[in-house]
């Protein structure tokens, strides 16, 4: 095991997969000469050359579609969006082309490719640059959605995503890139985490905090505060939203009988809506209280620091939601 950053973990995954398979290439804005806007592709141009690490114009719809076309004929493109906010321009190619290709062609043509980049809010980047985009993607059958929270998950899941034969939206976090964590050494063999397997990041018996992506860390902080109060929480990190590890969700709910869903995005039609629906469909009798969701406030992200703070999900709001589900007065 080595302790590396989330950024380095992604970089290793990219380098290893490009090394292994010549059909894998990386394209996006500033990925080559500039080493990536967030330095995730650092050194890859030197290592693999400009045939395989390609700086694109600012043409999101164009280069996402180019990736789809290349995937249709057997390459394995990794399309980097500088942030997923800008992928909204490319959604036509993602949703109308990549996600439907296999189906429309009756199974003849698949799109083995990865769309990746940071999603969600960083700090004070305001409305157009602070959006949790997973819901746009996860809504559409045909595309897989991966949201790693730790360096190890980032590496293992990115390698699996690149090898996957379907289009995968791989959503990172700007505020995660510097996060450090243990990752198995490259010398100890390929480190792959299969898509569709959730991970219990912390174990407890009183309540389940279910979440994904960057919010895993908010959930863990809330759980340690609750512990001081004698409340032990399960923190379940879904890791991938499609495929979704429904068994893991039901297992934790059956154990604790109480659940909170925490996510970064908006509440209306959020990821949590689907999770709550599954829980009430399949584990209604196991519940001791209604499931509560914690989300971003139902507004575009404001710039002002004080407003941004109250708009984002916070440790305090998670604790308040847990108390509500536990029928406790905090």
């Amino acid at each position: 095991m080595a302790v590396i950053t989330y950024r380095e973990a992604l970089n290793q995954a990219l380098a290893e997969e490009m090394e292994r398979d010549d059909s894998v290439f990386l394209m996006g804005e500033e990925v080559a000469e500039y080493d990536g806007a967030y330095k995730v592709s650092k050194g890859l141009l030197d290592q693999f050359g400009e045939r395989r690490v390609v700086d694109s114009p600012i043409s999101e719809l164009g280069f996402a579609g180019l990736g789809v076309g290349a995937a249709m004929v057997g390459l394995r493109p990794i399309i980097e969006f500088m942030t997923f906010n800008f992928s909204i321009l490319a959604l036509d190619q993602v949703l109308n082309s990549a996600a439907k290709m296999l189906y429309m062609s009756g199974g003849q043509i698949s799109c083995p490719m990865v769309f990746r980049g940071p999603t969600g809010a960083a700090l004070q980047l305001s409305a157009q640059h602070s959006q949790a985009c997973e819901i746009w993607y996860v809504h559409a059958p045909g595309i897989k959605v991966v949201t790693p929270a730790t360096p190890a998950d980032a590496k293992g899941l990115l390698k699996a995503s690149i090898r996957d034969n379907d289009p995968v939206a791989f959503m990172e976090g700007e505020l995660l890139y510097n996060l450090k964590g243990e990752v198995p050494d490259p010398d100890d063999g390929d480190f792959i985490i299969p898509l569709g397997v959730a991970d219990l990041k912390r174990e407890g018996e009183h309540i389940s905090i279910i979440t994904h992506g960057k919010m895993v860390h908010v959930a863990l902080q809330a759980a340690s505060k609750l512990e001081k109060d004698g409340i032990e929480a399960d923190v379940l990190d879904l890791r991938t939203l499609r495929p979704l590890d429904v068994d893991a969700i039901l297992a934790t709910v059956r154990k604790t009988n109480r659940a909170v869903y925490l996510e970064e995005g908006w509440p209306w039609g959020g990821v949590g809506s689907q999770i709550v629906s599954i829980i009430q469909d399949e584990a209604f009798d196991d519940l001791d209280a209604p499931v509560v969701r914690v989300t971003q406030a139902d507004v575009p992200m404001p710039y002002a620091k004080n407003l941004e703070q109250i708009a984002k999900p916070s440790v305090d709001r998670v604790i308040a939601a847990c108390n509500r589900v536990l029928y406790r007065n905090s």
Binding site: I58, N85, F86, I88, L89, Q124, S126, A127, Q128, H129, P302, Y303, A304, L307
Partner: peptide
């Protein structure tokens, strides 16, 4: 913009300044 837009989103409807926009 009442503190809601920040550097990238300066607006002045009265002056005909229809905004700074963040998506290239």
């Amino acid at each position: 913009s009442r503190g809601k837009g920040g550097s990238m989103h300066i607006f002045g409807a009265e002056q005909g300044f229809m905004g700074g926009h963040g998506i290239v």
